[in-house]
Write a protein that binds this DNA or RNA. Structure first.
Length: 557
RNA sequence: UGGGGAGUCGCCAAGUGGUAAGGCACCGGGUUUUGGUCUCGGCAUUCGCAGGUUCGAAUCCUGCCUCCCCAGCCA
């Protein structure tokens, strides 16, 4: 975190350090449930937890919260680890699984039964719900609440041994059925689930609930600050209660507001639905707010970390404009991405006064932000492609680019002037006849005359064809969840979130970059050679973000 | 309407009784062989509202308003 930046959690830690509350230790953890891919909201939590450990010379554990065998899979733990590493964080040997604590958790459950603090309940899920009470009214105690310790021990043993079917019984804590906090109304500690667990296999047929697992896992690992999101604020009394009634080491839970972003969705349920119903092409679709999607789109770890630093950490609900994220990417890539010329929508230009068979090589700067990155050679010849949008036959007042009679500069090449517009039978412009000024080689006029625009271009004879995938926001509304009568968030999907363009013309050097490479197409945007589909001889580029476009703004007015 | 949280610029967010940081966005000027970058300037007499305490309040007190979360054998 940049010097001077802080947040309320760091202030708590500062104070704890000052009072020596945890013997000077700072230990955090990132506890994902392996039931989906990580998204930008998780990145906020990862940067928070690992960032604190880094800055305070502490330790951050990676712990998979895998207490529900029905939803969790190895594929997800693999992707989660890959994404955290890619973001630039390292948990070292501190990789844990809540499922590794199942034996200890079971012992603790036994302890509570023996102490008369837990009981086996025969109520069905439906009956439990009906007796839980409401927001205003207290719950009714379960008729099984007063079973003897012996009977509870016997029943719990038999639950563990698999004698009872799923859902037939639970182990519940004797907490407080009259509590205004629903979480404290004799919460379920264990449920029967004859399901195969991705790690413990078929060893267990009873599985602990989140509340009976999370705090204890933190406790076992000697976590000092257990940072989670706001919706767990109501669970903190239970977190505290379990630690206290078990008489074990008691970490401090602190809650912060989760991240929301405009023009996208962040809930796991919705992301899963997008993938499952093929609204996108997988978890790593470049339109997804997943870490893997952002990576494939062309985001960098640096830009995402910078974003997380900038948005801050607080307790107020928030929705950050996606422009903030895009800004962070542009800022990073502006410094590091090599520039190339590529024409997305080609318009043929013939230089009538240029020798037919001549080819010359011009020198282009790789990155004006980093002169040390050197230069490259770009071939130039009589027939070129320019961007179709860079020519207007009848230009408005503020259009500086090419038009009949106008003179512009071809970047690193020559001044050219449009002499003639060639159209086909339908009136479609198919070619421009221009003249070039040999004296302007490199892009400067010896007579000092100026030109108002510089265009990118590619020599037709040397161009390499490519595919470009132009991405836009996944949803048309800032808040996809805000829907009208009978509509759903799915109806807010942006039909134009992906435009595949073939026949893109690349300068030769651009066709040589490796898959995953980040580049700038001059005047167009930052692109990333697709990690999966890009190959030598078959270039495929994803547009991560456009360059800021002052002309587009002028046009809008 | 029980409980738990939160309200500071369009969006984030500092501020912790001494007179409203910063970033994004937006609007103008300059530089520029990317209408990019960079750069300069503008952008909250006011902190949900109303009272009160104080020499002094976004910060303290009282009352009210609005929004979010909670009735999974999910996490």
């Amino acid at each position: 975190m940049p010097a001077g930046k802080t947040n309320f959690i760091r202030q708590i830690i500062d104070e704890d350090l000052r009072t020596n509350k945890w013997d000077g230790r700072v230990m955090t953890r990132f506890p994902p449930e392996p039931n989906g891919y990580l998204h930008i909201g998780h990145a906020k939590s990862i940067c928070l937890n690992f960032g604190i450990a880094r800055d305070y010379k502490g330790i951050c554990h990676l712990r998979f919260d895998d207490t529900n065998p029905c939803k969790e899979e190895q594929e997800y733990v693999d992707s989660i680890k890959e994404d955290i590493r890619w973001l630039g964080f390292d948990w070292g040997e501190h990789e844990y699984f809540a499922s590794d604590y199942f034996d200890q958790l079971y012992e603790w459950a036994l302890q509570m039964i023996r102490n008369g603090q837990a009981f086996v309940c025969d109520l069905s899920a439906e009956e439990i719900r009906q007796t839980r009470g409401t927001l205003k009214e207290p719950g009714q105690p379960s008729p099984y609440r007063d079973r003897s310790v012996e009977e509870n021990l016997d029943l719990f043993q038999r639950m563990k041994d698999g004698e009872f079917p799923d859902g037939s019984r639970t182990l519940r804590a004797k907490c407080d059925m009259a509590s205004p906090n629903l979480n404290l109304r004799d919460p379920v500690m264990y449920r029967i689930l004859h399901a195969h667990h991705h790690r413990s296999g078929d060893k267990w047929c009873i599985y602990p609930m989140y509340d009976f697992t999370h705090g204890q896992s933190d406790s076992i690992e000697r976590i000092t600050h257990s940072i989670c999101t706001l919706e767990f604020e109501d669970h903190r009394p239970l977190y505290d209660w379990y630690c206290d009634t078990l008489g074990i080491y008691h970490p401090q839970q602190i809650e912060f507001a989760r991240l929301n972003l405009t023009y996208t969705v962040m809930s796991k349920r919705r992301l899963l639905e997008l993938v499952r119903d093929r609204h996108v092409n997988g978890w790593d679709d470049p339109r997804m707010p997943t870490i893997s999607g952002l990576r494939r789109r062309g985001y960098t770890p640096e830009s995402i970390r910078d974003f997380c630093d900038r948005i801050g950490v607080a307790k107020a609900d928030n929705t950050v404009e996606i422009q903030m994220l895009e800004h962070c990417l542009r800022e990073h890539l502006n410094k590091v991405a090599p520039r190339y010329m590529a024409v997305l929508n080609p318009l043929k230009v013939v230089l009538t006064n240029y020798p037919d068979d001549q080819t010359e090589t011009l020198e282009a700067v790789n990155n004006p932000e980093r002169p040390e990155d050197g230069t490259r050679e770009v071939p130039f010849s009589k027939v070129l492609y320019i961007e179709r949008e860079d020519f207007m036959e009848d230009p408005p007042k503020k259009f500086f680019r090419l038009s009949p009679g106008a003179e512009v500069r071809l970047r690193y090449a020559y001044f050219i002037k449009c002499e003639e517009v060639i159209k086909d039978a339908d009136g479609e412009i198919v070619e421009l006849r221009c003249t070039y000024d040999p004296a302007t080689r490199g892009g400067d006029a010896p007579d000092g005359r100026k030109v108002k625009a510089t265009l990118h271009w590619v020599s037709a004879a040397h161009a390499v064809d490519a595919e470009a995938r132009l991405y836009d926001h996944l949803f048309v509304k800032e808040n996809p969840g805000a829907v009208e009568d009978g509509q759903t968030w799915i109806d807010n999907l942006n039909p134009d979130s992906l435009k595949v363009v073939s026949g893109v013309k690349l300068e030769p050097e651009l066709a040589k970059v490796a898959a995953g490479a980040h580049v700038q197409f001059e005047r167009l945007g930052y692109f990333c050679a697709d990690a999966k589909d890009h190959a030598p001889g078959k270039p495929v580029f994803n547009r991560a973000v456009t360059l800021r476009d002052a002309w587009a703004k002028i046009q809008q007015k």
